[in-house]
């Protein structure tokens, strides 16, 4: 347990220091990575710990993003309450999706989440008058501040992203220490057994999906607020595949795996897109190679080989 606390504290301390030491370009990248890693951590709650593979998490990311974005843009709501609206939108959407999609299992669950997310994406396009569709809209610089802190300032933005990331990391790490988290793992390992040991597995899966979706929404709202842009691309299928990829790469069912996966993938794509426009090829290759050779992902392999205590 202490090793695990040391690991998490160490990671956060390193990230605090990185904010001051990194050059501007990488500081900006890392801020983005921290927000996207928050999205991946949310995804990991459902996929990594509960064993449910969703192909539609972009709708929750999008609910947070548009909840905040539309409230600020059209409702004139200040940033902080708008963030709350984003969270509420994501929580409500994930509760509705959970009620319906959790009636299915396995492949059907994947397809149902994919279909719901596709409807959400099309809905964003349909209401183009407000959402401006694929083109998206930019949040006014002047409105992007909380308690007098200017979130467009790169350094403040970095630490705001780190705050969101830390909160999500603490929530998921703590969750996995208590009975609730153990029960999620039990469901992942053997759902029927868990049910027949007296656990309400359906209620646990519901809670896991809502927590997962709300964390994804928090990431979406943060992304809009910190980088000032809201667009339909973030609700497309691609953004449902990304967290799956990050979590698989970093290690599903590990607390820091999502961050490691997002970090690697971000820089891999960043580097590749420098010399080809077909940089998404990397996404495909990594997905295939992971399924073939390293199902446990980076941190999963580390746990298997060197550190079985890894949370």
């Amino acid at each position: 347990m202490t090793r695990s606390i040391a690991l998490h504290l160490g990671l956060i301390a390193a990230l605090v220091a990185a904010g001051l030491m990194l050059p501007a370009y990488h500081q900006g990248n890392l801020a983005r990575i921290l927000v996207l890693a928050t999205y991946a951590m949310g995804y990991n709650v459902l996929f990594g710990y509960t064993g449910l593979l969703s192909l539609g998490h972009a709708m929750f990311f999008g609910a947070g993003m548009y909840g905040l974005g539309l409230a600020m843009q059209h409702g004139g709501v200040p940033a902080l309450p708008a963030f709350g609206i984003g969270l509420a939108a994501a929580a409500a959407l994930s509760a509705i999706v959970a009620m319906l999609a959790l009636r299915t299992i396995g492949v059907a669950f994947m397809i149902v989440t994919l279909m719901f997310a596709q409807s959400a994406y099309l809905t964003v396009l349909y209401f183009g008058e407000w959402t401006r569709g694929d083109e998206g809209f930019v949040l006014q610089q002047a409105t992007r501040q909380i308690a007098g802190l200017d979130l467009t300032n790169p350094l403040i933005r970095y630490y705001a992203a780190l705050t969101v990331f830390t909160a999500a990391l603490v929530i998921t790490a703590r969750m996995m220490q208590v009975r609730f988290g153990h029960t999620l793992i039990a469901i992942r390992e053997n759902e029927e057994r868990t049910r027949m040991l007296g656990y309400n597995t359906q209620a646990h899966k519901f809670a896991a999906l809502v927590i997962s979706g709300t964390l994804a929404g928090a990431a979406g709202a943060s992304y809009a607020l910190l980088f000032g842009y809201v667009g339909a691309t973030f609700t497309s299928v691609q953004y449902s595949i990304f967290p799956l990829l990050w979590v698989l790469l970093g290690g599903a069912g590990t607390t820091i795996g999502p961050f490691i996966g997002t970090l690697f993938m971000f820089y891999l794509i960043d580097t590749t897109s420098g010399f080809t426009n077909a940089y998404l090829m990397i996404v495909g290759l990594v997905l295939v190679l992971l399924t073939l050779f390293a199902r446990a992902g980076i941190m999963g392999e580390v746990r298997k080989r060197f550190a079985p205590w890894l949370p």
């Binding site: 793992i185 039990a186 390992e189 053997n190 029927e192 057994r193 027949m196």
Partner: peptide, 11 residues
């Protein structure tokens, strides 16, 4: 208890 052994193999 299950007819076909149903335990948590990974735990």
């Amino acid at each position: 208890t299950f007819q076909i052994t149903s335990i948590y193999n990974q735990l």
